[in-house]
Amino acid sequence: MKESLLDIVCCPLDKHDLELEVTEREEGEEGEIIAGTLTCTDCGETYPIEDGIPNLLPPDMRE
C-alpha cells in the first residue's frame, strides 16, 4: 500500500485516523508498504498490512 492511502482510509469502527507502523517496505523513495500495522488513534484497534494489502475489516469479520 502507498503511504498516501492514509489520506483516504480510516478506522472502520469509529472513523478516526490510523497510525502507520512499517515492518517491511519496498526499496526506493516512494516504496510501497509491504507489511506493517495500522492502529486507530482513538480506539486502539489494530489492522494488519500483509503482502501490501491493508486488512481494514473489523475484528469480527476477519474469521
Binding site: 500500500m1 502507498k2 492511502l5 489520506d7 483516504i8 482510509v9 480510516c10 478506522c11 472502520p12 472513523k15 501490501g52 494489502i53 491493508p54 486488512n55 481494514l56 475489516l57 473489523p58 469479520m61
Partner: peptide, 17 residues
C-alpha cells in the same frame, strides 16, 4: 490496482471518494 480489504465503505473517510 491499489487494493484494500474493506467491508463496503466502512473504512473510507468522510467525503474522501
Amino acid at each position: 490496482v491499489e487494493a484494500v480489504r474493506v467491508d463496503l465503505l466502512a473504512a473510507f473517510r468522510d467525503g474522501a471518494l
